[in-house]
Amino acid sequence: KVTVPKWSNTGTTLRLRERGIRNHKTGQRGHQLITLKIVLPAAEEPELVAFLETWEPKNRLDPRKEMLT
């Protein structure tokens, strides 16, 4: 089980300390890295659809902002 921090998005990498593969020479475990992929439900959920149709974000996000710098 993993606790995903609030505001995590697709592409966020989480590090699980000492949960990776054990080094057979030293006996120590490495870190396991997890890259998140956010997936929406396959079946339509009327409550989710209604919320998203009326929702207005407080802060506009420009996903291309960092691509041009």
Rank of each mutant, 00 (worst) to 15 (best):
L16V: 08
E53S: 09
P5K: 12
P57L: 02
K58A: 11
P5G: 03
N59D: 12
D62R: 07
L48H: 14
V2P: 13
K6H: 11
R17T: 06
V4H: 08
L33Y: 08
P5Q: 09
T3L: 12
A43N: 13
K37I: 08
K37S: 01
F51K: 06
E56Y: 07
G20Y: 08
E18H: 10
K25Q: 03
E47D: 10
V49H: 13
A43F: 11
A50M: 11
T54Y: 09
R17Y: 06
T26W: 01
P41V: 08
L48K: 15
Q32Y: 08
K65E: 02
R15V: 12
V49R: 15
L61C: 06
K58I: 15
E66M: 06
V2Q: 15
R22C: 02
H31P: 02
A50R: 14
E66Y: 04
Q32R: 14
P46M: 07
Q28F: 05
R17S: 01
K6E: 07
Q32S: 05
I34W: 05
T10A: 12
L14M: 04
V2F: 14
L68Q: 02
F51Y: 11
H24Y: 06
T3I: 15
A50V: 11
E45W: 11
T35M: 00
G20P: 13
W55P: 02
E53D: 10
G20H: 10
D62L: 05
K6M: 11
R17C: 03
R15W: 04
L61Q: 07
H31F: 04
L14V: 04
M67A: 04
K65Q: 02
G20V: 12
T69V: 04
N59S: 11
E18S: 11
R17E: 05
L36G: 00
E45Y: 12
L16N: 06
K58R: 15
E45P: 11
Q28T: 07
A42M: 14
N23I: 08
L61R: 06
L16R: 10
T35F: 01
H31R: 04
P41Q: 07
A42V: 14
E44L: 14
E47I: 10
A50E: 12
S8Q: 15
G30W: 01
N59M: 14
G27A: 08
Q28E: 07
R60D: 11
R60L: 09
K58N: 13
K65P: 01
N9C: 08
V4F: 05
